[in-house]
């Protein structure tokens, strides 16, 4: 895999045999595929993916609540797999596809999990909701036959202080049924 960093900036030193070339610490241009679109942005190596999404990319749907992977509010998909965007650096995303809450619906058509969240009131204040939706949508995409325990396991890393877990489970099970039909 060609590193997106060096490919774009050309700032990288010529690779010597001993150690790999470096970029930064000043901001550098990187490319990233976000919600299906190629985006370029300036980041310092120390910028997390969550910060890059919310800052330079203007995708504030992704929330930062604990900033250490403990609450999963910042969940996005990396190549379709849910991860905490606060636990990964923007410079290391490379060619992997990033999907955020803004990229889940197809135009006006909500993802079945989004629609089910509304119908089952699986949200209150809504701050944990984007991350919660991303985890549940990934589960429904990957596993059509679901039990309540599967949903609980999938959201076991999420905190919701409003206490929406029961409705989140009900909504996700309903969305999985819709998807199968």
């Amino acid at each position: 895999m060609i590193n997106a960093v060096s490919a774009l900036t050309g700032r990288a030193e010529a690779p010597d045999s001993a150690a790999p070339p470096s970029v930064g610490p000043d901001p550098l241009a990187i490319a990233m595929t976000v919600n299906g679109a190629a985006r370029s942005l300036q980041v310092e190596p120390r910028m997390t993916l969550a910060e890059a999404l919310r800052g330079p990319l203007g995708l504030t749907g992704t929330k930062i609540a604990c900033n250490r992977g403990a609450c999963s509010a910042c969940t996005v998909w990396l190549d379709g797999v849910p991860i905490c965007s606060c636990t990964v650096l923007a410079v290391e995303i490379g060619t992997r596809r990033v999907t955020t809450i803004e990229g889940l619906a197809r135009g006006d058509a909500l993802h079945p999990v989004q629609a089910a969240f509304i119908a089952h009131d699986a949200l209150q204040c809504g701050f944990c909701t984007p991350g919660m939706v991303m985890s549940c949508a990934a589960l429904v995409e990957r596993q059509p036959d679901l039990t309540a325990d599967d949903v609980r396991a999938a959201i076991s890393g999420h905190y919701c202080r409003c206490g929406t877990y029961p409705h989140v489970v009900a909504a996700t099970l309903a969305a999985a049924r819709t998807r199968k039909e």
Binding site: Q114, F117, I118, L123, F127, V133
Partner: peptide, 17 residues
Amino acid sequence: PRQNGRAKVTGATRFTV
């Protein structure tokens, strides 16, 4: 169902942060 549900599940809601 709550009216602002759609904005919340699509990440469109603007929080203070």
